[in-house]
Design a protein around this nucleic acid. Sequence first.
DNA 1: TATAAGATGAGAACTATTCTCAATAAAAGA
DNA 2: TCTTTTATTGAGAATAGTTCTCATCTTATA
Lengths: 161, 161
Amino acid sequence: MTGSGIKAGSQHQQGVTRLESQDLRNAGLKVTAPRLKMLELLEKAEGRHLTAEAIYRLLLDAGEEIGLATVYRALTQFEAAGLVTRHHFEGGQAVFELERGPHHDHIVCIHCGRVEEFFDEVIEKRQRSIAEKLGFELRDHTLTLYGECNTPSCKNKSTKS
Amino acid sequence: MTGSGIKAGSQHQQGVTRLESQDLRNAGLKVTAPRLKMLELLEKAEGRHLTAEAIYRLLLDAGEEIGLATVYRALTQFEAAGLVTRHHFEGGQAVFELERGPHHDHIVCIHCGRVEEFFDEVIEKRQRSIAEKLGFELRDHTLTLYGECNTPSCKNKSTKS
DNA sequence: TATAAGATGAGAACTATTCTCAATAAAAGA
DNA sequence: TCTTTTATTGAGAATAGTTCTCATCTTATA
């Protein structure tokens, strides 16, 4: 959607793959082709949020032989290992993104689905004090803003409703 | 938030029912037994978050004759009418709560599932300016904190994992 | 290499939710 | 009040997203 030209080519081979292999080993997972392919794909997606189905299709389209079950399984494992984050935006399907850098929240366009990320220390701090005040030990949070974005390619598109 | 002992008795009859009837009419919905029963139940739940399934079971247990499809349908209509809010906390099932007062966010215990509500103007304000800065017209948001609560009845319970 | 532990793909199974449809009940009109 | 119109209902089928099962195949290890 954004357009930082990412193609399904095969630029990075060994170097990246090695890093990814290490990620897998660190997570106690065997280094297998499906997993590496998935990590590569997520890497190339550069922060875009993909559904399991999308990952599956992209890999199939790229000529990989992979099963949907494997995609789901791997994503769950990656999540447990802290390699990816799973989000439940509106609309049933979970989306996944590679965990790069620390934490951030999201704003999603209700028309075109575009997702931007942000981080705000004021909000973070506030959350901590709210949790404390209410007698909770904060472990996690999800903050998602929904709005209408201003990209020219957006407004035209129909809403889900 | 408060925790005043709510029992599944049948205290309020006519008075409340009339208010609820009006809510339905205002929403352009016919006043029917299933809908009234659902609103009554949500009313009695005083802010607790119920799944569609839970509402269905509670009504069955209370001797009402109702179908699960009706519950889902009505909840969707109530939501469209602004009578209830739907939340997607972790775990697949959506939960519903009667819309009372203005807006608030939630903190959920990852052990016992207890939900508390809060409102924080600083966070709200911050969200608005973030949206603006990123070129979005803010329409909605969800903020849910996850933590471990301090109620004695909680820590013992097992985590979902 | 041979072996054991893990991972895989395909499809069945499952869960949450929505849809279909004939029967029914509520609002509106006479 | 009786009738007509139209929305609503319950039951079960259907769907979407995800997880499970299992026989087969790979990876890491001896």
